[in-house]
Simulated scan of single mutants.
Amino acid sequence: MPKTIQDLIELAKNKPQKRLVVAVANDPYVLKAVEHARQVLNIKPILVGDEIAITHELQALHYDIKAYQIVDEPNGVLACKQAAYMIRQGEGDILMKGLIDTSILLKAVLDKEFGIRGPRRLSHITLLELKHYHKLLLLSDAAMNIAPDVELKKEIILNGVEVLHKIGIEKPNVGVIAAVEKVNPKMVATTDAQALIESHTDVSYQIGGPFGLDNAINKEAALHKGVNDPMAGEVDFLLMPAIEAGNILYKALMFLSDAKSASVVCGATHPIVLTSRADSDETKFNSIALAALL
């Protein structure tokens, strides 16, 4: 079972070669991560977009252009469709966002003719390595689903649990996060937690809550507050109540706590690397490594 992001990278190194299709690939920050993945992770990069612009960026970075397959499509919208369609046709294994708005790429992903729509709703997950937590922690949803209801939260849980299973966590603990630990009819996050727990029948994971963040990840805090759930302090998966909570927590951990992370979008037929422009080259590389394991 991996305990660190480096453990994930080591696991990814031993996987068969994966073909990474980058949509609108003329982004130097993305290309730095892709080149790193090519050298370390046995990744075959396929760059879709304006060939002249992509070649210019590769030359500016002093990368070997011959190491890359370039698919020329200067129109960004069409490049996204082309990249998604290549995955759909079995010509690629992982889709990655380049220099294009997220909404445009996701529209291509969900296109019924060209896309890679899966059986569940798309959701964003982040695996975090934290200095003050004893194992990797999955956070969802920090980037896509704004105010998920109970049914959507069930799909977000299944997406995240699937990721945890694939990295070796057999029966993950899912903690439903709220501002308080008791069900309060005026706080939707707590009533959602109650509904999720009452309807839970899937033996592939355990679920508990509502948890405040402190008692989800800290056993001592849970004991002080009288939270007796055995999952307290041992959560593998933080199910956040809404996008604001997930996004703020993610950014606070990354920018104030020196966390390491890897993020993907789940729910499509293939993993999607969709990182923020503010994410470091290292985070983008880590995300490719995670996708290679999925």
Rank of each mutant, 00 (worst) to 15 (best):
L95D: 06
D141S: 10
L105H: 08
I104Q: 12
G98I: 04
I146W: 04
L110I: 09
G92A: 09
K97H: 13
L105V: 06
A147V: 09
L130W: 03
R121G: 15
L95Y: 05
S103H: 14
R117F: 11
R117W: 07
L110H: 08
T102Y: 05
A147G: 00
M144D: 11
L130P: 04
A108C: 03
G92H: 08
K135T: 05
K112D: 04
T102L: 09
L106C: 04
Y133Q: 02
K135V: 00
A142F: 07
D93H: 14
D141A: 12
K135L: 02
S140P: 07
I116S: 05
T126M: 12
D111H: 15
S123P: 03
A142Q: 08
L136I: 00
L128E: 03
L136N: 03
A108Y: 00
D111C: 06
M144V: 09
K112R: 12
G90Y: 14
L122V: 01
R121C: 07
I100G: 05
H124M: 07
G90T: 07
L137I: 00
H132F: 08
L122T: 03
R120G: 04
A108N: 05
S103T: 15
Y133G: 01
G118E: 07
P119W: 11
R120N: 12
D141R: 11
I116H: 07
I100C: 02
I100Q: 08
L127A: 06
L128P: 03
L106H: 06
K97F: 15
K97D: 10
Q89Y: 12
K107S: 09
L138F: 02
V109F: 04
E113G: 04
V109R: 06
D111Q: 13
R117H: 10
R120T: 14
K131G: 06
A142S: 14
K97L: 12
G98E: 07
M144P: 02
L105P: 01
H132V: 00
D141N: 14
D101H: 15
A108K: 06
V109P: 11
T126C: 15
K107Q: 12
A147M: 05
R121E: 11
I125V: 15
